[in-house]
């Protein structure tokens, strides 16, 4: 298959490969997979707890060139965005930026799923930690 120049660029020079401390409350981790291809993608974000801005994003993907490029691009886009802004990234944005062919659209879906999973994990950690005082009366009512 002929990959676009942008896919090749991300594939040959992937941005932000690596990992963040999974146990940190400021870090959200998303682990997703496409079983039909046997791909697995891990994407992590580190969020500034005060500003809500994503300061760091890392990924590691075992899969085809399009899956690697999609997740590499996603980490570039995530940095500097607030969590809410990050949730607005759509797989179609990735498809357009990388000129992915129809058979590779699922790779961009995987990257969008990874962003959502990482943010979901971060929010779950935050809600467990921060409003402990506010939660107690609510639980008493329930």
């Amino acid at each position: 298959m002929a990959y676009s120049d942008k896919v090749l660029d991300h594939y040959n020079n992937p941005r932000n490969v690596g990992s963040l401390d999974k146990s940190s409350a400021s870090v959200g981790t998303g682990m997703v997979g496409a079983p039909e291809c046997g791909d697995v993608m891990k994407l992590q974000i580190r969020v500034n707890d005060v500003s809500g801005i994503i300061e760091e994003a890392k990924f590691k993907t075992f899969g085809c060139g399009s899956a690697i490029a999609s997740s590499s691009l996603a980490t570039e886009w995530l940095k500097g965005k607030t969590v809410d802004e990050a949730l607005e990234i759509k797989n179609t944005d990735i498809v357009n930026e990388l000129s992915l062919p129809p058979v590779k659209i699922h790779c961009s879906v995987l990257a969008e799923d990874a962003i959502k999973a990482a943010i979901g994990d971060y929010r779950a950690k935050q809600s467990k930690q921060a409003p402990a005082a506010a939660q107690t009366p609510a639980q008493a009512v329930a």
Partner: peptide, 9 residues
């Protein structure tokens, strides 16, 4: 099979 995602793993 082709429509599976993360939720299926």
């Amino acid at each position: 099979i082709a429509e599976q995602g993360t939720k299926d793993v």
